[in-house]
């Protein structure tokens, strides 16, 4: 009479563990740790809330900073915020020029997993005339060797906006 086969597939535990993408880790004392894989994905429903006009502005080819409405302050933020960090007063939207210069820069040869496939990429902090703070952006059409602090740059905007900060990037300014 044939033996029941109910549990036969579990007979080779090692093979089953490997097949499932898991592994046994044996440490120097011979202890066996079972290591399994557990995927985790999630979609957030994220509102830009008070920052929304900035991202809508990018889709129209505009960089909107913000300016403090307190006459005694008038601080201009290149990365907008709806209330002034200096005096606490509400700010108003303040269009920034499409040209600026590099406050600092780097070329990333590695990155987070989400951006590894885009390496190498350049990051830049951009200064604008009349603004008291700077803006972080990607810098394209140039390599590490071209870049220096103070370099003039100009903005480019995606014509297929994804409503992300990546809708804006900078390139070396045409003289």
């Amino acid at each position: 009479m044939a033996k029941p086969k109910t549990f036969s597939k579990f007979r080779d535990v090692q093979e089953e563990i490997t097949r499932s993408g898991s592994a046994i880790f044996r440490d120097k004392d011979g202890f066996e740790a079972l290591v399994v894989r557990s995927p985790y994905a999630i979609e957030y429903i994220h509102s830009y809330a008070e920052d929304s006009p900035f991202f809508l502005g990018l889709a129209e080819g505009k960089i909107l900073g913000s300016r403090c409405t307190n006459a005694a302050c008038r601080f201009v933020f290149a990365t907008p915020r709806s209330h002034c960090m200096v005096c606490g007063t509400a700010t108003q939207w303040h269009p920034l020029p499409n040209r600026g210069k590099l406050h600092s820069w780097t070329t990333c040869h590695f990155g987070s997993e989400a951006f590894l496939k885009e390496t190498p990429y350049n990051l830049a902090l951009v200064e604008f005339e009349g603004a008291g703070s700077v803006l972080l952006a990607r810098l394209k059409d140039c390599t590490e060797k071209d870049l220096y602090v103070g370099m003039p740059v100009e903005a480019r905007f995606s014509d297929q906006p994804r409503y992300s900060i990546t809708d804006l990037w900078f390139v070396p300014a045409r003289t």
Binding site: D51, W105, I165
Partner: peptide, 25 residues
């Protein structure tokens, strides 16, 4: 900041590189 910083290539070594390039300057 996940609105303004992370989507650009969120990478801490990149941020520290930006800081040291300015420090050097």
């Amino acid at each position: 900041d996940t609105n303004f910083d992370f989507p650009l290539g969120g990478f801490y070594t990149g941020y520290y590189a930006l800081m040291v390039v300015r420090h050097v300057y």
